[in-house]
Simulated scan of single mutants.
Amino acid sequence: MRRSALVLLTALPCAAALPAWWRELPRKPALAARFTQESDSAVFGKLSQTGTLVLARGGRLRVDYASGLRVLADGRELVQYDPDTRTAQRMDLIQAVRDFPLLGLLLEPARIGLLFRPEALPGEGVRLVPREPGLPEVHVEGRNGLLKALTWTDPTGARQRLELVDPRVPPTPSPATFRFDPPPGTRWATAGR
């Protein structure tokens, strides 16, 4: 009986076994980095985009793609702006996180445990096992208390990878960093704006 209890305890994932960078991640007030986002699918092949991002506590996010596409979240709303079509789309941030759970990984690392069960991988990796059907398993890499990369397979079967290049904790970003000021001629794709 005693031996089987010991075997059971050693088989359970242990929070202490998670890497130090993972345990420190929710404590970071902000994160800034350049990034490379890659998608590899049977239909479209391999696609890659680059840009910069800034994250801050309270659900604040700014992503500027090199192509000009911009995504901003101020803690209440998420806005996506496409300069090619001069259109913007606004949605409630809570709804956006429900529709795109991986967005929650970036915006609120302290709440990851609600949707995923973290498990230590060999080395410095963490596997996020979904707690709900429909969510992908996510492999997360980090270093020095900072997120370094996310890898998952999306619902279409495409392998996705978001790699942060030289992530750092910046000085506290101002609220203006996350505010969308629509350029003249912007058309809103959502009603009421």
Rank of each mutant, 00 (worst) to 15 (best):
S174I: 06
P101E: 09
T156A: 11
G68L: 12
R161H: 01
R117S: 11
W188C: 02
P83A: 14
T85G: 13
I94M: 14
E163M: 13
R98A: 11
R98W: 08
V169K: 09
A120N: 06
T153Q: 04
P171Q: 13
R187S: 10
Y81R: 02
F116T: 02
V126D: 00
F178G: 03
R159S: 10
L78R: 14
H139D: 09
L103Y: 10
R179A: 15
P133D: 12
F180Y: 00
L69D: 11
P109E: 00
W152M: 05
L93I: 01
V165Y: 00
F100H: 15
D84Q: 09
G104W: 06
E119M: 04
R187W: 05
G123P: 04
A110K: 12
M91V: 09
D84H: 09
S174F: 02
R143C: 01
P175Y: 03
S67M: 02
A73I: 04
L150Y: 14
F180V: 00
A73T: 05
L102I: 10
R168H: 12
S67F: 07
L162N: 02
E119C: 05
R161V: 10
R161G: 00
T186L: 00
G75F: 08
P136I: 03
T151A: 11
L164D: 02
E108F: 13
D154L: 01
D92C: 08
Q80V: 15
L162M: 13
L93Q: 09
E132K: 09
L128S: 03
G125Q: 11
D92H: 10
L102K: 07
A88K: 08
G113S: 13
D84Y: 15
I112Y: 02
P170K: 11
D74Q: 08
D181L: 13
A96Q: 05
A88P: 11
V129M: 04
L103K: 07
L146F: 12
R131V: 01
G75C: 08
P182A: 05
G104N: 08
V97E: 14
E141A: 11
D166L: 06
N144D: 15
F180G: 01
Q89M: 09
T177A: 09
V169Q: 08
L69W: 12
P184W: 07
P133F: 09
V138S: 01
E124N: 15
